[in-house]
Amino acid sequence: MTKKTLVNSKLICVALNDKKQLAALEGTFNEAPYKKPPTQPVLYYKPRNTWNTDGATIEWAKDFSGQAVESMVVGASLGVVLGKETCRVSPEEALQYVGGYTLVGDFSLPEESYYRPDIKGKCLDTTAPVGPEIVPADKISNPDALTVTLSVKGEEKSRFDLSQMERSVAELISKISYIMTLQPGEIIAVGFAGDRVPVAQGDQVEASIEGVGTLKNTLGGA
């Protein structure tokens, strides 16, 4: 729980929203324990202990015996910040509820399974930086046309065109707003490149979207 977090009350992340990743995992998803591919957005929360800011250090996670974990990964997403209460809205009207856009970093343990909520992997302290700022919604004409890039130690490691998302920003807002009433300042991280990027202790990580900004963080533990 960082004081200056840009998140109000809730940070929802959408997993498995990269078409390429879904196609690659189709065989796996037809087998146990999944049995069939997801029919709905696959969602998880980064709870308040994870919220962090631009420029901050991300703690290197420890395992249950107190030792530094071997590997961590990072994904980056466009963060859609709700501007008003959003309850049961259609995809056609959904973007009217957006107050602004930002970047969300999701540092975690490697994604090994999607079967059970990944509390051990995703809920680690300080692992959800959000920022550097919230850009007003009217500055972004089409959020689905943006590209998210991720670089580690100055080298680009991942590039994700949001046109490659299984579900668009508007569709996600609509779907989620039929599950729960969203409040102003709540943020949806709408999609991550399927291949999460490995990081090491001390690495500098930058997530960027043109027109939204660059979110810079450093891994701790070095």
């Binding site: 929802i12 997993a15 498995l16 324990p33 999944y34 049995k35 069939k36 997801p38 029919t39 709905q40 696959v42 969602l43 998880y44 929360y45 999607y114 079967y115 059970r116 909520p117 990944d118 599950i179 729960m180």
Partner: peptide, 12 residues
Amino acid sequence: ENYYRPNLRVKS
């Protein structure tokens, strides 16, 4: 659904 089960649609 068998993704982050019990999923948010069930429990949130």
